[in-house]
Design a binder for these strands. Sequence first.
DNA 1: CATGAATGAGTTTTCATTCAT
DNA 2: TATGAATGAAAACTCATTCAT
Lengths: 197, 197, 197, 197
Amino acid sequence: MIIEAALEEFAEKGYAGASMAATAARAGIAKGLIYHYFPGKAELFRAVIRSCVQTAFAEAEGLIAGYEGPRTVLISVLIDQAYARISRERRERILFKLLLVEAERFPELAELYRTEVLARAIRLIGAILRSGVAAGEFRPGAADPGLPEVLLAPAVMAAIWQMMLGEADAPSLEAMRRAHAALVLRGLAAAAGPDGG
Amino acid sequence: MIIEAALEEFAEKGYAGASMAATAARAGIAKGLIYHYFPGKAELFRAVIRSCVQTAFAEAEGLIAGYEGPRTVLISVLIDQAYARISRERRERILFKLLLVEAERFPELAELYRTEVLARAIRLIGAILRSGVAAGEFRPGAADPGLPEVLLAPAVMAAIWQMMLGEADAPSLEAMRRAHAALVLRGLAAAAGPDGG
Amino acid sequence: MIIEAALEEFAEKGYAGASMAATAARAGIAKGLIYHYFPGKAELFRAVIRSCVQTAFAEAEGLIAGYEGPRTVLISVLIDQAYARISRERRERILFKLLLVEAERFPELAELYRTEVLARAIRLIGAILRSGVAAGEFRPGAADPGLPEVLLAPAVMAAIWQMMLGEADAPSLEAMRRAHAALVLRGLAAAAGPDGG
Amino acid sequence: MIIEAALEEFAEKGYAGASMAATAARAGIAKGLIYHYFPGKAELFRAVIRSCVQTAFAEAEGLIAGYEGPRTVLISVLIDQAYARISRERRERILFKLLLVEAERFPELAELYRTEVLARAIRLIGAILRSGVAAGEFRPGAADPGLPEVLLAPAVMAAIWQMMLGEADAPSLEAMRRAHAALVLRGLAAAAGPDGG
DNA sequence: CATGAATGAGTTTTCATTCAT
DNA sequence: TATGAATGAAAACTCATTCAT
């Protein structure tokens, strides 16, 4: 499929470096056929990005929807899931990189990322934090603005470092996951805290 | 100067999109002259990156070298400094983006980033954490591997989001800074906690 | 109808610039269908030209056929008719332009124009001139070769200037028509002259 | 020279049909070099046209400037000169064709033709006619608007027919020249004129 | 009759690089 | 040092034409 081939090509070469001819070759079709389906390189790129953004949140949102137990456990599970996803989903790492790199050239894609990815994740985490504060599980400041972003950041950075440095040389996902979870659980705990036990 | 012009050009267009002619024009010289100083585009790019990496740590390392007070304060100050730097240093955001994008194509640059930037930052933070644990200021787990990366990540992500989304649409630096500091100080605190004092 | 659509397309873009896809779109049919009716672009073009050449002379030939009065009046009427036609018939201006442009590439079309359009017009005018000379209405030299072309030329040039410069900027059709008629009538007059009557 | 090669190429193939590669080959240079001197095909075309328009009027204007004798002779000489030019100057025939064909696509060229060629010729002829009327050589109506265009038209049409049909099949230049001169001289003559004997 | 996916050669254009001056 | 003319390979994109349906 063209979109699939284009994702590979864009991921490897970046937008400017990617070649329509190479994309066609990857897809096993003639160059001209791409222009049957997409008006040009830019539209193909947009289509590639859009086709990726769709599926990212089903998992997490499903998990949270039916959840009943303590928020500390939920947070732990979500962190675990995030890191697992990072090591699993190559497509999403690529997607993020492309978005980051080309955001200046394709402002609508930056907007797409902001509203469909980042804002959604922030909202998800924020809701958990607020309900945790309301339930007395988290300290009052846990509902402050900026905290969801801070909680999310290490997982995203882990993904970025994986991309930049490769699995071998990047910071260990497992170590980051553990440190992340430990820091967050202690940092959010109500005054009685996890150490109060 | 050529390097300066090239930084601008690479930053705006990316490696593949950057043009030697445009770089020469920015520098106010003829195209051919670049080839007197650099063997080609790739070497020019390498030179640009290297010229940027040098200066980044002087500030932080100077601060830590002579420091004597409590680590909690030091950590706070470093976090403040990091966020301040993010909103100040456009060149460094650009540099990071270039490194991220071109790391696959220029593995030595990934290596450069890993050893000269990331590892150095990790070492710095790790040293503070370990001495804090030794002094009883931080909980024992604060010296665990992965924690320096986790502590660093939100500041780096803040920079990335600034790049991607622009100052207007990116998460607020100030809110992140506050949430980051609060989370870290509580998350690192020894059993008595920072508020227990 | 395909021919109609093709005329528009060829007129706007020229032969080389015209696109079969655009022609099909204009005609409201699929690209492939054109190839059911015409073997290719060149044949379609020939068909377009031929379909236009047919109707041009019915009017003038009808007028002349039954005419009995003085040739000076007939000439006047024909000149009026020619200029009227010019401001009316956009298709014919287009046709002429296409023929002019593509005559080198399609020599049979040049031939078509020569025999079916130019020679026919020259014959028509020549016959009037000769009969006028025979009747003593025109001076003897009025039957000389080359004169029919000279008489025809201003009307054709008026059409060409209309095409090139647009109605607003081209020489006034009305002024040319008057000057043309006046010049011709005096220039053809027998010794006693048209004003001598 | 590039302009020269481009003139040939545009003349043979038209604007859309002309190929930059073929132009480069004609000029004996590499494709890319054209873009050193001209930003693109359209600018090259404009340059070609402009380089042709310059020289066309020197001859006629020089002749008229110093002229002292009777206007009837001057008109005869100018007509002779025009037809001589037509059979001599292939470049100018080509130029005119290109202008005609591409005027819609390059309105500034139509404007160029209108102001630099057509208006200039009209002004020249008009001045002669007016001074001839003032001197009593021409009939009063010879200064009417539209007449200069009518006088000019047969010579231009002769050129166009030459282009379309080739020298062999086009109306004879010599016959047209004679008929043209005879018609004009009689048509312009003052009342005493050819009939006044 | 009619469609439109598919092809591939051809087009304009860009650009890193070379080299005579 | 410094220039900029010159090259040629490769890019994006177009389009007449074919053909399975």
